[in-house]
Design a protein around this nucleic acid. Structure first.
Length: 572
RNA sequence: GGGCCUGUAGCUCAAUUGGUUAGAGCAGAGCGCUCAUAACGCUUUGGUUGGGGGUUCGAGUCCCUCCGGGCCUACCA
């Protein structure tokens, strides 16, 4: 039995996430976690909300609430939605937790002791009206290059020229519109990533099995221009983790907090402590996942994220860990995803475009979304959600192929043999041929799942479902029954058992439907079908079952058109 | 501007890393079945692999070039 640590990129706190966010990290991470648990491995699956930074403060202000209160509320909302999508986190933590405060300060202290922190005095734009320093992109003005009047302080969206906020003509605050801006000096801590470049580079080079998307981004940051740059790890904000050197104050850094990208990945670790603290377990229970000197040396650590997160997970966070000089577990494999587009454009949280997690669950059960999103996961390139494709895929795969299989088998049995697994009769060549196909199909499914090839795994699973229908067509128990009821009994006994096998195989993708299949088969046996032949005898002769309700109702054209219209505009 | 990814059948995607005649699912067509959510099965029509050039015995795959789509470019996260 292996031990697998799984983390999903932690979703930002400032609102409900859309389906693109979901499929880019949390959902495939959940698929993998459920699969590995199903195979009998020990899994720790962690996620949290990412709560610090300027956007959180502004969102709270917009909502008219103190930022701590706002974040607590949004955490509850996101928790409820992740439950709704059946995301099986062992702990859904918060980057604002006391555990993360302590650990982040601890890491900063270690890095300072190692000589990897530098104090830098720099100039930043301060908005008097807003009472805050403004990140470059929160300053707007006229582009000196092209004259575009909504250029941002980091870059002009119109002519793509990179800018400095002081380049802008008539700069103003993007928050309030105020032009009462001034340049102030402020002191910040920088993590001297440059001195870790060699170690990071060697480490990345050793990861020959990582996706191209992941390593190419990392190598670009390592080698582009002057190479990896030092990075500011503090900010002038109210909401965040106060800058401290371990337990001790950090002279000159009073009133400042750590940069959100410094503390957010550390929450992966702190979340594990949140988990043991909440369940009354000793620290040793989380340390055996994270400390290679305390049992984590046999852990395989897999991270899931969208491509925009890759630099922080391949460089910044490893720099923090390596620089600490302590034996923390480094990531073994990074699975990164491209973006999901919505009907010809991008999903957009800020513009309210697309389908959001709460809306999705209002119109259909989680399994529908899980199946479509995972079977169309944007692994090699960006992919696109359209209502037509969604309707067609879900109706065909879930309702016609899988759902109808369960339906036709259980109803036929009920009408001919009653609601119990029929006795008598023996398997013949057709059954052996089916078993052989199932055995190799399951092996193919396992291969794709181990490799975290999400779409390919979905294809293999679908092919396994189709085998059931092919078998029934060939065996034709409805005809056989007339001449040889015992033979038909053997066929249906196999088919009923196949429903249980499908439930176990399908649970990582569609956990609710899988649970329904198991309960209608009246069994708690979720053992992985390693040996198909014996797995198909798990439900013995005479075992009672019930015919389930329709597993997946089809999406009608009217519904689809209705949703197309409803989601055509922007969310208000 | 620079870097990276990407373009394969009407649609969504494969193609064992340069190796037979480029394959699946959906949609379309035909046949079959009648247990089932009008579901299922079998057969089948669709491709000058974005255009052009090159390397090679051999190119979807490698090189050059042009065209289209996307991402990143370090103070949004």
């Amino acid at each position: 039995m292996a031990r697998i640590l799984i983390t999903s990129a932690i979703p930002y706190i400032n609102g409900i996430k859309h389906l693109g966010n979901l499929v880019g990290s949390q959902l495939p991470a959940d698929l993998y976690a459920r699969y590995m648990r199903g195979r009998g491995h020990e899994v720790l699956f962690l996620c949290a909300t990412d709560e610090h930074g300027t956007p959180a403060e502004l969102a709270a202000a917009k909502a008219g609430k103190p930022v701590a209160e706002y974040c607590a509320e949004m955490w509850s909302v996101q928790k409820e939605l992740s439950d709704g999508f059946r995301l099986s986190f062992d702990k859904f933590g918060r980057s604002s937790s006391p555990q993360n405060h302590a650990l982040t300060q601890h890491f900063a202290g270690r890095l300072a002791d190692a000589g990897l922190i530098e104090e830098v005095t720099e100039k930043q734009v301060y908005s008097n009206a807003d009472g805050r320093f403004l990140p470059d992109r929160y300053i707007e003005g006229t582009c000196p290059n092209c004259g575009y009047d909504k250029a941002r302080g980091d870059q002009c969206e119109n002519c793509t020229k990179q800018l400095d906020p002081t380049d802008l003509i008539e700069p103003r605050s993007a928050v309030s519109g105020s032009t009462d801006l001034e340049v102030r000096e402020t002191k910040h801590l920088y993590l001297k990533q440059r001195s870790l470049r060699g170690e990071l580079s060697d480490w990345i080079d050793s990861k020959t099995d990582w996706p191209i998307l992941t390593t190419s981004i990392a190598k670009k940051w390592l080698n582009d221009g002057d190479g990896l740059q030092d990075r500011g790890i503090t900010r002038d904000l109210d909401w965040g983790i106060p800058v401290k050197k371990g337990d001790a104050d950090w002279p000159g850094m009073e009133g400042k907090v750590f940069y959100v990208w410094f503390d957010a990945p550390i929450e992966y670790i702190a979340c594990a402590k949140e988990w043991t603290d909440a369940t009354g377990k000793p620290d040793a229970d989380w340390e055996r996942w994270w400390r290679t000197d305390k049992g984590a040396d046999d852990v395989r650590y897999v991270q899931f994220m969208g491509k925009d997160n890759v630099p922080f997970h391949t460089l910044s966070f490893p720099a923090t860990i390596i620089g600490s000089g302590e034996p923390w577990k480094l990531v073994d494999y990074i699975k990164s995803f491209n973006y999901l587009n919505y009907d010809g454009g991008q999903f957009s949280t800020s513009q309210g475009r697309g389908v959001f997690m709460d809306q999705a669950l209002e119109i259909l059960p989680a399994d529908y979304w899980r199946w479509w999103l995972l079977s169309h996961a944007p692994e090699n390139s960006d992919s696109e959600f359209t209502w037509e494709n969604f309707q067609a895929s879900v109706n065909k795969d879930l309702a016609d192929v899988l759902g109808n299989f369960v339906s036709r088998v259980t109803k036929f049995c009920r009408s001919k043999f009653g609601e119990q697994v029929p006795s008598d009769g023996a398997w013949g060549d057709e059954e052996n041929a089916l078993i052989e196909k199932l055995q190799s199909g399951i092996a193919a499914y396992e291969t794709q799942m181990e490799a975290i090839e999400v779409r390919k795994a979905a294809n293999e699973l679908r092919a396994l479902w189709a085998l059931g229908n092919e078998y029934l067509q060939g065996a034709a128990p409805w005809s056989v029954f007339k001449e040889d009821p015992e033979r038909a009994a053997a066929q249906i006994r196999l088919a009923l058992n196949l429903i249980r096998v499908y439930a176990v195989l399908s649970a990582p993708f569609i956990p609710d439907a899988a649970a329904k299949m198991l309960s209608s088969m009246n069994t708690l046996d979720t053992e992985w079908p390693g040996d198909v032949k014996s797995a198909l005898t798990a439900l013995p002769e005479g075992h009672a079952f019930t015919v389930p309700e329709v597993l997946f109702a089809k999406i009608s054209d009217e519904e689809r058109e209705d949703w197309q219209t409803k989601f055509a505009g922007v969310r208000t």
